[in-house]
Design a protein around this nucleic acid. Structure first.
Lengths: 247, 247
DNA sequence: CGCCCACTTGATTAATATCAAATACTGTGG
DNA sequence: CCACAGTATTTGATATTAATCAAGTGGGCG
């Protein structure tokens, strides 16, 4: 099933025509090797990229090489709607795993968006949610301890993966290195290792470099001080009574 | 002079009519006390707020009270264009100093934006720049040391203040407490104090709780590993040859 | 004057980084 | 199937950064 449609339907539902348009947004899927830049800071990109499979991230680097991952994409995420306005990328996008992406030319996006206002709003919604996630990460970095930060990251991955149908049980495919997680959380790789051990030992979550298993979601969310509001899920479906809300 | 127009003209220039519209966006300026919430997380806001004078911030808080400031507004900044799509605020906005704000009703924004596409693009640009700044903060939090983080924050404040004409020399009005700076940088107030002393002693920047003075901008930017690209200034004026670029 | 803050200072502790070495895992060629 | 090389993970020891605690100091203002 189309992960993009699945994701956007957390915002609103589409009719058959809209779905067909979303399905047909691009033709040629492109396979990108792991750890490969898709767009680099300073570039002036001309289209947007839809992640079809695999994990990709936004990142920024300091002049001396320190890198920070700013967010990750799961299948169904679109990389850069903002490029239509900003002239140059202020950060880079790279794959972590092998990934399949589809590049949608600027022209096609404009056409679709002009013709289907609901799709436009849905894409806009997706962008705003992503920014909300960035803000939550900033909160994590500034205020959460290393353990809380990991607990939170894992809660988020779990919820986002479920939102696009990437998992049905407590286990999510997450083929990342500990050094990747280090770049996501702003911690050293060694410390990441110790934090993971601690979480494993306390029996709330397991991660073996390939699969992430949430053993005790409730406890994990408690450790993380997790509040799902920032993911803005179920706002569109609210009328249908599907959403779950925290107090 | 209108700080909003001044800011947006970093993206494109406007004709007389557009300027008049921007000037007239709202009627009643409202004075808000210092340290007062303007919008709170979970609210469903109905308009956008333009900061006319004073400093305001976005912030998020964890359930146990830890707070993180996510970004600040200077006069000319508009708080929440995104509310048209997201149903609930995922963070709060509060004043730090006494501030003067104008609330623009949703309807008025829609009207103006529909009628003046350039204004729409300019507002969109402003929003995207703000998000770019959030990403840079995330990089700061994750990778910059306390000293670098402060150096960077001060560079940013300096550049943003200049962009809207809030300063002409090396000094910017910045009536904040050290505890405010602590919430911006994710450091403890005590540590902020020591970092400020260090920066003052090394003679690159002074801050006395009221005024920020950049003594040596070049050196400060070096300490901060500052790259102005993320502010996206001068992209619109590029054709006029006004922008300055870093290597 | 005296109170209330914010700021400053010093001492101590806690969190995390760094360094270095050992172990485990993955894929490859024989 | 095994040996090996190259990575990734794990472990231990130590250093650094920043938080915390506690006690001043200083300034603005009723």
């Amino acid at each position: 099933m189309n992960a993009l449609v699945r994701k956007l339907e957390h915002f609103c539902s589409f009719n058959k025509e809209e779905r067909a348009v979303l399905d047909s947004l691009s033709e040629l899927p492109l396979v990108v090797a792991p750890r490969h830049d898709i767009i680099r800071e300073g570039d002036n990109p001309t289209g947007v990229n839809l992640i079809v499979d695999g994990y990709a991230v936004r990142y920024k680097a300091l002049a001396d090489g320190r890198r920070q991952i700013l967010g990750y994409f799961v299948p169904g995420d679109i990389c850069d709607l903002r490029v239509f306005i900003l002239k140059r990328m202020d950060h880079s996008i790279a794959t972590l795993t092998q990934a399949e992406i589809k590049t949608i030319p600027e022209k096609r996006v404009v056409e679709v968006v002009d013709r289907y206002p609901r799709i436009m709003r849905a894409l806009w919604w997706a962008t705003l949610v992503e920014e909300s996630i960035t803000r939550e990460w900033l909160l994590s970095m500034g205020q959460r301890t290393a353990v809380e930060r990991f607990a939170h990251l894992f809660c988020e991955i779990y919820h986002r993966a479920h939102a696009v149908g990437l998992a049905d049980g407590p286990t999510v495919r997450l083929p990342l290195r500990q050094s990747d997680l280090a770049e996501m959380t702003g911690l050293s790789a060694v410390h990441v290792n110790r934090v993971l051990q601690q979480l494993r030992k306390s029996g709330v979550v397991k991660f073996d470099g390939r699969l992430l298993t949430i053993v005790n979601l409730e406890q994990l969310e408690e450790i993380a001080l997790f509040d799902p509001l920032y993911l803005h899920m179920g706002e569109g479906r609210a009328a249908k009574g599907i959403q779950a809300k925290s107090a």
